[in-house]
Amino acid sequence: MKVDEDKTAESDVREFFASAEDVGERIDKWLVGKLPNFSRSRIQALVREGAVWSGGRILSNPGERIKADEAYRIIVPDAVPEPPRAQPIALNIVYEDAHLIVVDKPAGLVVHPGAGHSSGTLVNALIAHCGESLSAVGGPERQGIVHRLDKDTSGLLVVAKDDATHQGLAEQFVSHGLDGRLRRSYIALSWGEPDRNRGQIEANLGRSPQNRTKMAVVAPEEGRHAVTHYEVLRTFDAPSAPKLVSLMRLVLETGRTHQIRVHLAHIRHPVLGDPVYGSGFKASARRLGPAARTALERLGRQALHAAELAFEHPVTGEQLSFESPLPDDMVRLVECLEAGN
Results as ranks from 00 to 15, higher is better:
residue 101 I to Y: 01
residue 101 I to M: 14
residue 101 I to W: 02
residue 101 I to N: 00
residue 102 V to Y: 08
residue 104 D to H: 01
residue 104 D to L: 01
residue 105 K to D: 04
residue 106 P to A: 06
residue 107 A to K: 11
residue 107 A to E: 11
residue 108 G to L: 09
residue 108 G to H: 10
residue 108 G to P: 12
residue 109 L to D: 05
residue 109 L to M: 15
residue 110 V to S: 05
residue 110 V to Y: 06
residue 110 V to P: 03
residue 110 V to N: 04
residue 111 V to A: 12
residue 111 V to T: 14
residue 112 H to D: 11
residue 113 P to I: 10
residue 113 P to D: 02
residue 113 P to G: 04
residue 114 G to N: 08
residue 115 A to D: 01
residue 115 A to H: 07
residue 115 A to G: 14
residue 116 G to D: 10
residue 116 G to Q: 12
residue 116 G to N: 11
residue 117 H to C: 05
residue 118 S to C: 05
residue 118 S to Q: 15
residue 118 S to R: 15
residue 120 G to V: 01
residue 120 G to A: 06
residue 121 T to Y: 04
residue 122 L to P: 14
residue 122 L to Q: 14
residue 123 V to W: 01
residue 123 V to N: 05
residue 124 N to M: 09
residue 124 N to H: 09
residue 126 L to P: 00
residue 127 I to K: 00
residue 127 I to C: 00
residue 127 I to N: 00
residue 128 A to Q: 08
residue 130 C to Y: 00
residue 130 C to E: 04
residue 130 C to R: 01
residue 132 E to S: 15
residue 132 E to C: 00
residue 133 S to E: 14
residue 135 S to F: 02
residue 136 A to W: 02
residue 136 A to D: 14
residue 137 V to Y: 12
residue 137 V to W: 11
residue 137 V to Q: 13
residue 138 G to R: 10
residue 139 G to H: 08
residue 139 G to Y: 11
residue 139 G to P: 09
residue 139 G to L: 06
residue 142 R to K: 15
residue 142 R to L: 08
residue 143 Q to D: 00
residue 143 Q to T: 04
residue 144 G to M: 01
residue 144 G to D: 07
residue 146 V to H: 12
residue 146 V to F: 13
residue 147 H to V: 01
residue 148 R to Y: 10
residue 148 R to N: 08
residue 151 K to Y: 07
residue 152 D to M: 13
residue 153 T to M: 13
residue 153 T to C: 12
residue 154 S to M: 12
residue 154 S to P: 12
residue 156 L to K: 05
residue 156 L to H: 02
residue 156 L to E: 05
residue 157 L to D: 03
residue 159 V to K: 00
residue 159 V to Q: 03
residue 160 A to V: 11
residue 160 A to W: 02
residue 161 K to E: 13
residue 161 K to G: 10
residue 161 K to M: 11
residue 161 K to P: 11
residue 162 D to A: 06
residue 162 D to S: 07
residue 162 D to L: 05
residue 163 D to Q: 01
residue 164 A to V: 14
residue 164 A to N: 11
residue 166 H to S: 10
residue 169 L to S: 12
residue 169 L to M: 13
residue 170 A to W: 09
residue 173 F to W: 15
residue 173 F to C: 10
residue 173 F to H: 10
residue 174 V to T: 15
residue 174 V to D: 15
residue 177 G to I: 03
residue 177 G to N: 03
residue 177 G to T: 04
residue 178 L to T: 15
residue 178 L to Q: 15
residue 179 D to C: 05
residue 180 G to V: 03
residue 181 R to I: 07
residue 182 L to D: 12
residue 182 L to M: 14
residue 182 L to S: 06
residue 182 L to P: 05
residue 184 R to I: 08
residue 184 R to D: 07
residue 184 R to K: 15
residue 185 S to E: 14
residue 186 Y to W: 07
residue 186 Y to V: 08
residue 186 Y to N: 07
residue 187 I to T: 15
residue 187 I to D: 09
residue 187 I to G: 07
residue 188 A to L: 06
residue 188 A to N: 06
residue 188 A to M: 04
residue 189 L to D: 13
residue 190 S to P: 01
residue 191 W to H: 03
residue 191 W to C: 04
residue 191 W to V: 02
residue 192 G to F: 10
